[in-house]
């Protein structure tokens, strides 16, 4: 199996927790993983991405070549589009629809939605609303990850195990919240696929 994933968002939005959860799930299945992150200046509210490569064979480049990503997972709608040149023809774009507006010329949200709809395989969801209903806006990134899990060839249970490992030290309640967020995201994606 091979899964090349671009994670997108704005510095501070928590894409690295998504990356860590996927990484943990991949390792549990004895897969090779490479995960390039952005540290430094861009973390101050700038556009950030992480290139995540998972494979049952060895991986050379830390960076995904253009046109070869199987998935773009984004926690912000405009950021989801920034990496389109990396998405393969069959690839999926999965994004939270809540904009993070910290620039004066942020585009109109309806136009953004229309543009996302032009991507052949896309799914957008209101992860913030779902997370708020669960009681913590912080878990919206796990809703997005949940919606992406059907498109990554790793058993769903491994994602749950990964989350338990990563959030375990923060307490049972945090683990439960994140697992619930993951489940709802997953269900939404499966409903969308049917």
């Amino acid at each position: 199996m091979k899964s090349d994933i671009i994670l997108a968002g704005v510095g501070g939005q928590g894409i690295l927790s998504i990356a860590a959860s996927i990484g943990m799930a991949a390792l549990e299945n004895n897969l090779e993983v490479k995960q390039a992150e952005v540290h430094g200046m861009s973390q101050r509210g700038g556009a950030v991405q992480s290139n995540m490569r998972i494979s049952s064979r060895s991986i050379a480049s830390d960076l995904i070549p253009r046109g070869e990503a199987d998935l773009i997972i984004s926690v912000e709608p405009m950021e989801s589009l920034r990496y389109l040149p990396w998405l393969s023809g069959q690839g999926w774009l999965i994004t939270n629809i809540n904009p993070f507006i910290n620039i004066p010329d942020y585009p109109d949200l309806d136009s953004l939605k229309e543009t996302i709809k032009d991507v052949p395989n896309h799914l957008f969801l209101d992860a913030d609303a779902i997370a708020s209903d669960l009681g913590s806006k912080k878990v919206s990134n796990m809703v997005v990850l949940g919606a992406a899990t059907p498109y990554i060839d790793i058993p769903y249970k491994s994602f749950e195990d990964g989350i338990r490992k990563i959030f375990g030290r923060k307490g049972e309640e945090i683990v439960r919240l994140n697992l619930e967020a993951l489940r709802i995201g997953r269900d939404l994606a499966e409903a969308d696929g049917n």
Partner: peptide
């Protein structure tokens, strides 16, 4: 590469205080 392009409405998002 001649696949998808970055849509025109995507704006730069530089780091900020």
């Amino acid at each position: 590469y001649e696949g998808l392009k970055v849509p025109g409405l995507v704006r730069d998002r530089p780091p900020a205080l």
